Computed example of a mutant assay.
Amino acid sequence: MTSGILNLFRLNDKRALITGANGGIGGAMAVALAEAGASIVILQIPGDTNTSTKDELIALSAEFSVYDCDLTSVSNIRETVKKIIDEDGIPIDILINCAGVSGHKPILDVDDTFREKVFNVNMTANYVITQEVGRRMIERGKGGKILNVSSLAGMLATKNISAYAGTKGAVNQFTSAFANEWAEHNIQVNCLCPGYILTSLTRGYFENEPGFKDYIMSRTPMGRWGTPEDFRGITLFFCSKASDYITGVRMPIDGGLHGR
Score class of each variant (00 low, 15 high):
residue 44 Q to T: 07
residue 35 E to C: 11
residue 226 G to E: 13
residue 232 R to W: 01
residue 86 D to V: 08
residue 197 I to W: 02
residue 51 T to Y: 00
residue 223 G to T: 02
residue 188 Q to D: 00
residue 1 M to L: 10
residue 34 A to S: 06
residue 73 S to E: 04
residue 171 V to L: 13
residue 81 V to M: 12
residue 48 D to R: 15
residue 190 N to E: 00
residue 6 L to G: 01
residue 184 E to G: 15
residue 211 G to L: 10
residue 168 K to S: 00
residue 63 E to G: 12
residue 14 K to L: 02
residue 140 R to H: 10
residue 209 E to H: 15
residue 41 V to D: 01
residue 70 D to N: 15
residue 210 P to W: 10
residue 146 I to M: 14
residue 139 E to L: 11
residue 168 K to I: 01
residue 31 V to W: 05
residue 183 A to S: 14
residue 55 D to I: 08
residue 70 D to P: 13
residue 117 K to C: 01
residue 220 T to R: 05
residue 82 K to R: 15
residue 100 G to K: 12
residue 180 N to W: 08
residue 143 G to Y: 12
residue 89 G to Y: 11
residue 55 D to G: 07
residue 94 I to R: 06
residue 254 D to K: 08
residue 107 I to Y: 10
residue 81 V to S: 01
residue 102 S to I: 03
residue 125 A to Y: 03
residue 27 G to Y: 03
residue 22 N to G: 13
residue 86 D to N: 02
residue 76 N to R: 15
residue 250 R to K: 08
residue 175 T to G: 10
residue 177 A to V: 15
residue 172 N to I: 05
residue 228 P to A: 02
residue 214 D to I: 06
residue 156 L to Y: 09
residue 21 A to I: 10
residue 37 G to W: 06
residue 247 T to E: 01
residue 108 L to F: 14
residue 249 V to K: 14
residue 164 Y to E: 12
residue 109 D to W: 04
residue 121 V to C: 01
residue 123 M to L: 14
residue 239 C to L: 02
residue 217 M to N: 05
residue 23 G to L: 03
residue 146 I to L: 15
residue 161 I to L: 11
residue 65 S to R: 14
residue 178 F to P: 09
residue 120 N to T: 01
residue 161 I to E: 05
residue 161 I to N: 11
residue 128 V to Q: 07
residue 229 E to T: 08
residue 256 G to S: 03
residue 87 E to T: 10
residue 251 M to L: 13
residue 15 R to P: 00
